[in-house]
């Protein structure tokens, strides 16, 4: 089973890598093609925040294997300037003067969970999760193959 993947985010080339990694992990976890696209799009947004505001950071992708559901956790970390008002940053239209207003609220709509921790002058960590319910048949099959 796949372990966590770390993608350093320095330039906009790295965003493409992070999207592809997110898509690959989603496919590995059995997410539908559409869900994988939602994840890749959300990763694209938060990776861009790193490139534009912090210039240096990383994205860590981690699979979660539960019995009843599988999850994909995306953590984006940077040591950039931080977000003064996280609450406001989650509203549509925030910072739209520099054209980046849609990023966080949009990513939140694409994912099941999104949480932002930020300290001015220290940096920002965005944690996003996407879940996929597993059906009974899938769990049965797994039990059978585990017990061979």
């Amino acid at each position: 089973m796949a372990d966590e993947r770390r993608v350093p985010i320095v330039s906009d080339d790295d965003m493409v890598t992070a999207r592809a990694e997110g898509r690959a992990l989603a496919a590995h976890l059995g997410f539908s093609r559409t869900d994988a696209t939602l994840v890749a799009t959300a990763i694209s947004e938060i990776a861009r925040n790193i490139v534009v505001h912090a210039h240096d950071g990383e994205i860590v992708l981690t699979p979660v294997y539960g019995d009843s559901r599988y999850g994909l956790v995306v953590v984006a970390r940077d040591r950039g300037p931080g977000i003064p008002d996280v609450e406001a940053a989650m509203q549509d239209g925030y910072g739209s003067s520099n054209g980046l207003g849609l990023g966080l609220p949009g990513a939140r709509r694409l994912m099941d969970e999104l949480h932002v921790e930020s300290e001015v002058g220290r940096g920002t960590t965005v944690t996003m999760k996407k879940w996929r319910d597993r059906d009974e048949l899938e769990r049965l099959r797994e039990r059978r193959s585990d017990s061979r």
Partner: peptide, 13 residues
Amino acid sequence: QPDVAVAMVQFEL
């Protein structure tokens, strides 16, 4: 593509 269309709509782009 169909999956991209869904993502764009959900994003509200």
